[in-house]
């Protein structure tokens, strides 16, 4: 992660650090929902009890960050504009669905989720918006609660998620905030875009998926992961595989993010 560390320093210099800087402002229009504490059983869960890992309560934006919101961020932080962002922090397809540095254009409806953003850019936005990215466990916890929408049936959730993963990508994304709501009132967790998490590279799938479920997976997996907890949870496999294929500077046409906050200042899951 040498290049990652270097990028972090560059990014920190550009934005005045990850703490809310001079241009910082709350993101109006986004509600934050309290996600109640719970337990998460990661798909790669060697050494984790069957009951999973405890995750404390936290707050999560009710929907992903939109193009319009990200436009305000880059307007306030010129260093994150498309032509100025450092190549160590974003790859060459950063914000490529926008028409220009400060122009959204026909492929980026204002209310659609912003995509083609790197982990560094997403993290910088989250700090500017007085929050942070959710952790993997936080995100997985929030994204597992659909009892109200789907009945107490993890299979139905799994199928619904698989349906999205198995469908082709749309050229122009629909607006954020209209997807299925979780029990905590968080929308669009499934079926709109993939989402960055703060520790996306903490659990690594090597790309050699058959090895990941074998005994030598520990060689690849920084998170100490080995045997898959539930080999039939294809949806979770795919999320972990995607995260494992990423680097901090990568930007994808299907990858956005949302902002999280601690439930109370100083009492977070991190």
């Amino acid at each position: 992660m040498t290049s990652g560390v270097r990028a972090l320093l560059v990014v920190a210099a550009l934005t005045g650090g990850f703490a809310p800087g001079a241009g910082a402002q709350p993101a109006p229009g986004v509600e934050f929902r309290l996600v109640a504490a719970g337990r998460v059983r990661p798909i790669f869960a060697a050494g984790v009890a069957d009951t999973g890992i405890a995750v404390g309560a936290f707050r999560l934006a009710a929907r992903p960050v939109t193009n319009a919101e990200f436009l305000r961020f880059v307007a306030a932080n010129p260093a994150w504009r498309r032509t100025r962002a450092p190549r160590v922090a974003v790859d060459s397809s950063y914000l490529r669905h926008w028409s220009g540095d400060l122009t959204l254009g026909p492929n980026a409806p204002p209310a659609a989720p912003v995509v083609n953003v790197s982990w560094f850019a997403a993290s910088a936005y989250a700090a500017w918006a007085q929050g942070r990215l959710p952790t993997t466990l936080e995100w997985e916890l929030a994204a597992s609660r659909f009892h109200r929408a789907l009945g107490n049936d993890p299979e139905r959730l799994n199928l619904r998620v698989l349906e999205w993963y198995g469908s082709a990508t749309r050229a122009v994304l629909p607006d954020a905030g209209h997807g299925m709501a979780s029990d905590d009132g968080v929308r669009d967790l499934h079926g709109l875009v993939w989402e960055w998490v703060e520790d996306f590279n903490a659990v690594v799938t090597s790309g050699e998926s058959r090895g990941d479920s074998g005994p030598d997976a520990g060689l690849f997996c920084a998170g100490g992961a080995a045997l898959a907890a539930d080999p039939s949870n294809y949806a979770a496999f795919m999320r972990y595989a995607l995260r494992g294929s990423l680097r901090g500077s990568y930007t994808l046409a299907t990858l956005g993010f949302r902002v999280a906050r601690d439930a109370e200042p100083g009492k977070g899951n991190r």
Binding site: D91, G211, L252
Partner: peptide, 26 residues
């Protein structure tokens, strides 16, 4: 939507190339 890789059974080496070709979209 997915990352992909390739395992060529003609390749002698870990994963038949899969271990070295794990590729994010774009």
């Amino acid at each position: 939507k997915m990352p992909h890789n390739i395992d060529l059974h003609a390749v002698t080496g870990p994963g038949g190339g899969a271990a070295s070709s794990f590729t994010a979209p774009g």
